[in-house]
Amino acid sequence: MAGSGTIQLRDDDDIVLRVENLVVEFPVGRHQVVHAVSDLSFDVRRGETLGIVGESGCGKSTTARAIVQIPRPTSGTVVLDPGSDREAELTALHGESLREVRPRLQMIFQDPISSLNPRRFVRDIVAEGLAIWQKDHSGPHSQARIDEVLEAVGIDPEVAATRRPHEFSGGQCQRISIARAVALDPEILVCDEPVSALDVSVQAQILNILEDMKQRYGLTLLFISHDLSVVRNVSDRVVVMYLGKICEIGAADTLYSSPAHPYTRVLLASAPEPAPTVDPSDAAIGDEIPSPINPPSGCRFRTRGPRATDLCAAEEPQVQQLGEDHFVACHFPTLG
């Protein structure tokens, strides 16, 4: 895995988010540091869904939070609309100027119930963003917008006016979270494990709604999940992360049909119904992730990698290109 480099960044006019050399570290105890995200670079094209997948502790949620600047990354840049007149480098903004950019980046979370204020009416929760950002928030234009987003996610706006979150099911609360995020007409919607807390029958409803919202409002999605099948279903492009580093990035179907990084192969072979493109024996690795306080030298995946050599310990692999939209950070990728 482990790799660094920026070759996977695309030279494209229509990039809506560019993350470059992102580093997030947390101090712990006596001069020790958790290396949560180390030198991560990727970009997202307008209208695209980028999936980020990996085990717990790989830094996928930390990446999402660093992008929305809660908390701010240790170093690196996060640029919205690079090259356009709306370009904003989030890590350089502070105070009011950062606050003004926030409506362009909205987020939904894993636990739909705890992310809604239990004491407020659902309609007011959805309206709050507009109340903050639009002077005529009680005017007919705003009211129509609230009705529209609630209807788009399948919640009756009249019912929402008189009920509080606990009167809705988990799936409905996640719809409300989506409506709240979309009300401000964001460019990017960051979804951190949005279906992990939901029943399987509700999961498909939410995934379909996210697809519909993407079409309807021209959203760009950053979709974080540990579930490989869900990530493939929603994503155009997928990043596989391990211990704060990028392993593999590429078009979703390419990455799943010809996984090149040994860690991607491990994940695909470990799924309850393993992907047909990998050998079941690919799953045979230890299940202990090394500490992010003292990550292994060289390639961070080498301690679990089935084919690791001295080179892997000595030198960190750089991201290299395998195909048109397929990049891997490994000294010994599986080709073919």
């Binding site: 999961q203 498909a204 099948s229 869900v230 493939r232 279903n233 994503s235 979703a252 992907a275």
Partner: peptide, 8 residues
């Protein structure tokens, strides 16, 4: 349930 071998 989405399956891992279903195209995106």
């Amino acid at each position: 349930i989405p399956r891992i071998d279903m195209p995106s």
